[in-house]
Design a protein around this nucleic acid. Structure first.
Length: 498
RNA sequence: GCACCGAUGGCGAAGUGGCUAACGCGCUGGUCUGCAAAACCAGUAUUCGAGGGUUCGAUCCCCUCUCGGUGCUCCA
């Protein structure tokens, strides 16, 4: 059985990822802050963590995977106040949307999902442990901070030189109530209400206030996975300061290694530029679904570039990806519905074995999703060619379907749920009064039911029988304009939504 | 400013000190078809940002430059 060789930010090299001290792989992935809809950059990270989890399962290793939901932070407080809503009500909406998006992208749910606001006692306890060691201290305003000077290992993840950091920032020391400028907040004392809306706060042994940004992950990872666990993952931007601070808090409190392995997914560009609202290239998943792009194509595109490389997300790429997924589905359908002579062709059998080996080797090698994809397309081409030559035999088909299922166990795009998912997105847009953002072609396509289309296709077939090609082509072109493609196969007529 | 990463065909994107530089999409021609579509076949980078160096040999190692990205502050 192969092992997963994965780049480890902490060691700076490729290390074998495997469970230590437990049968399952214990992993923690930084989840969303539910203050807005998720954008494709967010989902690139979650998608690659999903690949990791699915591949680890294929290696025969179960996972204990924890993801947090940050449901209290500065942005949430600010936005909820602006909307005039209690934060619980405000975050509930975006949390629901987030999980709908995970479903649309076929991302498996972690074993444990943990809310920051449900783990306050654990956070308080962790800060108290640090306070006992004089590593946490309370400032004049009542907030608690972490004393970086007491942690000789600080900076080991992001490879930062502590001296440089503090020297550079010490200039503005007067503005801080902290002992050193780089000390970070563990617990934020409550502030006065804004516009009559009180800030969310908890009355604890540390005083009335709310948790700092980093403490929740330390507390919840430890709560579910123990003081030491196998893997911690997140976007590259979280490496510093978030993950660095998690390590500092956790290891100073426990005296032992926090996560052994750290995985960071690189950012993506959109149309060659940094994604930002001001550039006009900022896409949420919902934006793309309303424009008529399929969830499966989005998933496939975001997985086509390995996680450690920067990827350039483009609308053209989405079209390509749609076509690539279609080719896989067409091939899959061909194997499922075709009839093949008994027997086993040795050449195809060898190509099948090679594809499986290449696929596994690619993912085992730092999750090289691009090579894994290539391995499967090699097999698709070989098998299609054999089928055209009538040398593809039933024994081969069974094996190829097995390898295809293996591939799809990670890429998860063969099953066509796209039209249904798009309908869900449209229903949401209607509720939110945002139906005007949907593309007209999409609305035209979905206005036709499957039965409507079947009736038109039948009429066209009838017209063809009477050699009324003008009528037949008119129906085909009309459907095509509404995004429905007709294919006349040897064994009947098929149609699909584009 | 300091630190780090990247630059491969029309587009996206793997990869390697020396074998025909994967794979996908696109495009061109062919087979099939009433015409299409799908599928297949053939073609599509004498070349891997620019310049220099190391080497018998570099796209892959080193240096400089240009461009893009990221971190140093909230961000997946």
């Amino acid at each position: 059985m192969a092992t997963l060789e994965l780049f480890n930010t902490l060691s700076g090299k490729i290390d074998t990822l495997e469970p230590v001290g437990a049968p399952e792989l214990r992993m923690y992935c930084c989840g969303p802050t539910v203050y807005d809809y998720g954008h494709i950059g967010n989902f690139r990270t979650f998608l690659h963590v999903d690949v990791l989890r699915r591949f680890v399962h294929q290696l025969g290793i179960p996972t204990k995977h924890v993801m947090n939901v940050t449901d209290v932070d500065d942005k949430i407080i600010r936005n909820a106040a602006a909307a005039g809503l209690p934060i619980a009500e405000y975050t509930a909406k975006f949390e629901k949307a987030f999980f709908e998006d995970l479903t649309a992208l076929n991302i498996e749910l972690p074993e444990h999902i943990s809310h920051a606001t449900k783990s306050i006692p654990e956070m308080v306890s962790l800060i108290q442990q640090l306070a006992e060691k004089d590593i946490a201290y309370q400032a004049e305003d009542g907030s608690w901070y972490f004393r970086i000077a007491r942690d000789p290992d600080y900076g080991k993840l992001s490879k930062k030189d502590l001296e440089n950091i503090t020297d550079g920032a010490r200039v503005d020391l007067d503005e801080y109530e902290k002992d050193a400028a780089r000390d970070f907040a563990l617990w934020k004392a409550v502030k006065p209400p804004v516009n009559g809306i009180p800030e969310p706060s908890w009355d604890t042994a540390l005083g009335i206030g709310r948790p700092g940004w980093h403490i929740e992950c330390s507390a919840m990872a430890t709560k579910f996975l123990g003081q030491s666990f196998d893997l911690h993952a997140g976007g590259e931007d979280l490496m510093f300061p978030h993950h660095e601070n998690e390590i500092a808090q956790s290891e100073c409190a426990s005296g032992t290694t926090f996560a052994r392995h750290w995985m960071h997914v690189r950012f993506l560009l959109v149309e060659g530029r940094k994604m930002s609202k001001s550039e006009g290239n900022f896409y949420t998943l919902r934006d793309l679904l309303l424009k008529g792009y399929r969830a499966s194509a989005i998933r496939f595109l975001l997985l086509s570039v390995p996680y450690r490389n920067q990827m350039n997300f483009t609308i053209d790429g989405l079209t390509e990806s749609t076509n690539a997924v279609d080719r896989l589905r067409t091939f899959h359908k061909r194997l499922l519905t075709g009839t093949f002579p008994e027997g086993l062709d040795p050449t195809i059998a060898a190509a099948t074995v090679k594809a499986e080996q290449d696929y596994t080797a690619a993912l085992a090698s730092d999750l090289n999703t691009a090579e894994a994809r290539a391995a499967i397309f090699d097999l698709v081409r070989a098998a299609n060619a054999a089928a055209d030559r009538c040398t593809l035999l039933a024994g081969n088909v069974a094996e190829i379907l097995r390898v295809l299922a293996l591939f799809d166990g990670v890429f998860a795009v063969l099953e066509d749920r796209d039209a249904a998912l798009t309908r869900v997105a449209l229903a949401w847009a209607e509720r939110e009064g945002r139906l005007d953002e949907a593309s007209p072609e999409l609305l035209a396509t979905l206005a036709l039911t499957d039965a409507d289309i079947d009736a038109l296709v039948a009429e066209r077939t009838q017209a063809k029988k009477t050699r009324n090609f003008a009528r037949a082509d008119a129906i085909r072109n009309d459907l095509l304009a509404k995004g429905i493609l007709i294919e006349d196969g040897k064994d009947g007529v098929r149609w699909k939504r584009k």
